[in-house]
Design a protein around this nucleic acid. Structure first.
Lengths: 196, 196
DNA sequence: AAGTTACTAGAACGAGCGCTCTATTCAGCG
DNA sequence: CGCTGAATAGAGCGCTCGTTCTAGTAACTT
């Protein structure tokens, strides 16, 4: 996280690798041994740093991924004054990242969240927290642009949901178009508030 | 499928159970033995009807689930003349189903699609087909309401994506609100086309 | 009635899972 | 130097996975 980044510690490597693998393969589809292998750590090290086992690793990984996405969101929203343009920029940014990863690196928490829905595991909670945080960031931006509290909240919920869904659609169809379309339409929707 | 429904055959039971389990637990998280058990079939029967193994079962199940959702979509859209009201009714309908299932029965293909993204398995293809089919249904409705071809397509893509994402958000937060909000905002968005 | 096909039934296999356990290495410190 | 605790290393446990295989049963054909 520091600009003058030291070589990541074993613990950090485990978290980073776990985040990427869960993002791509889901929670169930990712094995502890695979995480250890790709992080150049051994099984012993993983259980040393995360006595809680696989679930504890996943919680740390998802928390990290959630924060990372928050930063991306904040940076992109800060880059544009007009809220319509800002939200559309987010969609474009997501589309870029998706294409560059070969349509593999989508939303970091969706896959894990869906797999653990029935259970009331800690993973569920972390995913819910991440989603709430992202909504809050968008709502904050809208409020700063003159939206009422209620409008900001409802539109922010819609924006996060739409981006989430458009990203999945984009991944499945291997095309930027769903995200581009969502960006344009969300911009149009937000425009109906600012120009009214 | 018939109104005078005969007791479902073994093959039908396998497909129905597999569809529900994959919807709730994902592809990786659902075992062939679990499917056989809950469908009151034996392993031998499963492999008799689906020599292709687990993937073949999943393909059949996802195809069925995709069609079932298509019917729900068509019925709900047919129930309202105004396109805004029609799309909002879809969101309400999804919210109802979600709540009634204890926030467990979400989109039938999202989970499986996300898990198999890297691989170019047949499952991917079925999910992509389902999504395209749903978009087509929404686009058809919009075109029937006077939308141009291009507008209809772009808005339909956005609608399906937004509903998809809102459903995931609703599941994670165990609340109808994300879907309700998405429904209201999508209606507002569509209104900007019909009243222009 | 005999033969053939469609279906049911479940034991068994190798592989991989999450996790535990013991052994070893290594840095810091009195 | 010897002690100590953190970190590394990986063999092995019990279990479940998807799949295969061999039998047994039911139903239709001729």
């Amino acid at each position: 996280m520091s600009l003058y980044s030291a070589p990541p510690s074993t613990r950090e490597r485990i978290v980073l690798v776990a985040a990427r693998l869960i993002q791509r393969q889901g929670y169930v589809g990712t094995g502890i041994k695979q995480i250890a292998g790709e992080a150049q750590a051994t099984l012993g090290s993983v259980y040393h740093f995360f006595p809680g086992g696989k679930e504890a690793v996943a919680v740390a990984a998802l928390r990290h991924a959630g924060k990372e996405f928050s930063w991306l969101l904040e940076d992109t929203l800060r880059g544009e004054d007009d809220p319509s343009a800002a939200v559309e920029a987010c969609a474009v940014e997501l589309a870029r990242g998706l294409r560059e990863s070969g349509w593999v690196d989508g939303c970091p928490v969706t896959a894990a969240a869906l797999e653990t829905l029935g259970t009331d595991s800690a993973i569920q909670q972390v995913c819910a927290e991440a989603l709430r945080g992202w909504e809050k960031i968008v709502a904050e931006k809208l409020r700063a642009c003159g939206f009422t509290d209620q409008d900001a909240r409802e539109v922010a919920t819609t924006v996060i949901g739409a981006l989430e869904g458009a990203e999945v659609t984009a991944q499945v169809s291997r095309s930027e178009e769903p995200l581009r379309a969502a960006g344009r339409q969300l911009a149009r929707l937000i425009g109906t508030y600012t120009q009214a």
